[in-house]
C-alpha cells in the first residue's frame, strides 16, 4: 500500500476513535452522584465542548471523503478503452475523408461556374 493511503486510513481510525471517546465521555460526565456544585457546572460545560468536538470530527470525516474523491478524479490517469487512431488506420474511413476533402477543395475552387 502507498504511504498516502496508510496515512489516510490512520487518520480515519484516529478520528473514529476520538469520536467514540468523546461520546462515551459525555455519558460518563452526565452522572450526577454527589459532586459539588462547581464540579457539576464544569461538567456541564465539558458536555457541550465534547458535543462540538464530535460535530467537528464528523465534518473532518466529510473532508476525508472529499479529499478521496479529489484524488480519484485528478490524481489518476485514465486511458480510454479502444484506440481511436486505429479506426483511422484501417484505411476505409481515411480514404473516404480524403475523397471528401478533395471534393470540398474542388468545390470551393470552382467559383465561376456557379456564380
Amino acid at each position: 500500500m502507498q504511504p498516502k493511503s496508510i496515512a489516510l486510513l490512520q487518520k480515519i481510525d484516529t478520528t473514529v476513535e476520538q469520536l467514540i471517546n468523546k461520546f462515551s465521555n459525555i455519558f460518563e460526565v452526565a452522572i450526577i452522584s454527589d459532586k459539588s456544585k462547581e464540579l457539576q457546572a464544569i461538567e456541564s460545560l465539558t458536555i457541550e465542548a465534547d458535543a462540538s468536538t464530535i460535530i467537528r470530527l464528523c465534518e473532518e470525516l466529510l473532508t476525508i471523503t472529499r479529499g478521496l474523491k479529489e484524488t480519484w478524479c485528478l490524481g489518476t490517469l485514465k486511458v480510454k478503452q479502444g484506440n481511436v487512431s486505429e479506426d483511422l488506420e484501417d484505411g476505409e474511413e481515411l480514404k473516404l475523408a480524403h475523397e471528401k476533402f478533395n471534393e470540398l477543395t474542388a468545390k470551393i475552387a470552382q467559383f465561376e461556374q456557379t456564380a
Partner: peptide, 24 residues
C-alpha cells in the same frame, strides 16, 4: 440542593447538545 442544581445544569447542557446535534 447541589444534586438538584447539578441535575438542572446537566439537563440544560444535554438539551443544548441534543439540539446542536440535530441542527448539525
Amino acid at each position: 440542593e447541589t444534586s438538584s442544581i447539578g441535575q438542572g445544569l446537566k439537563l440544560e447542557s444535554l438539551e443544548k447538545i441534543t439540539s446542536s446535534f440535530r441542527n448539525s
